[in-house]
Write a protein that binds this DNA or RNA. Structure first.
Lengths: 128, 128
DNA sequence: CCTGTACAGTACTGGTAGGTTATATAATCA
DNA sequence: TGATTATATAACCTACCAGTACTGTACAGG
């Protein structure tokens, strides 16, 4: 069976892993819009867009309104904050100073391996 | 056929949409590790982990070293900066002041709809 | 040379994602 | 009421994904 449902973070990442859905979010960031409006920029059927909207809604990234026969969608950005918080854990790893330190240490290690590569203390080189 | 390959941002998001892969990245943030080390925390076969590692490598999130029979993996964080930059576009949408304004406007609109809901100027209510 | 270890590669399978067309529903308009 | 518009739902297909088991390969050590 395996009825486990993915954690919220995975659901959000998966929802964002599609350029169509990201374009929909970009459109909704400028204000709410109907399904037809959201379909317009894409060479894709309306049911396909509705499916994308379901994915986004399931991830909590949009919500539905009701106005006559229209169901305008509106952006809900709070899951994006979870993404921002998560990725921020790694900020130090991509900032320039760290990259330079990382490159320095890697160069240093490569140099050492070239100098006295396969002779002594193999165990201390074992990763982990 | 459809040989189109997804854009880098989609590839990165997709790679992150799995708790196992995010756990692997968290482990590698503390330093490089062998495949066996990375397998240890998971009740999963080694080929399964190797597949996850391939996904991460394809997304540019890790890179491989070589030391004797070990292939230590190392974190490459630069794609995460792309994620951070993308999500930062929406920061204003989730920050508290915006949420309050958003809620205020929504309440205002609901109140107006209740007061003179289904009588006049339908066209001006059409979304888009 | 042989054995154990640390991986990679392949083949298979069940589930899901993302698209299609066709059809149903709900509200508006004439 | 009937036609039109907006959107949802259903059924289907294809491709890919995430596991599995099995097998192959490279290196280390007795």
């Amino acid at each position: 069976m395996d009825v486990r449902q993915p954690d919220p973070l995975s659901t959000t990442f998966a929802a964002l892993a599609d350029p169509t859905r990201r374009a929909i979010l970009a459109r909704l960031a400028k204000g709410e819009a109907s399904v037809k409006d959201l379909c317009a920029p894409f060479e894709m059927s309306q049911p396909a867009i509705s499916k994308h909207l379901r994915v986004l809604e399931h991830a909590g990234l949009i919500e539905q309104g009701r106005q006559a026969q229209w169901r305008p969608r509106r952006l809900r950005a709070s899951p994006l904050r979870e993404i921002a918080d998560w990725v921020d854990q790694y900020r130090s790893h991509w900032e320039e100073s760290f990259e330079r330190l990382d490159a320095y240490l890697r160069d240093l290690q490569d140099t050492q391996e070239q100098q006295h590569g396969d002779d002594d203390d193999r165990d201390t080189h074992r990763p982990g």
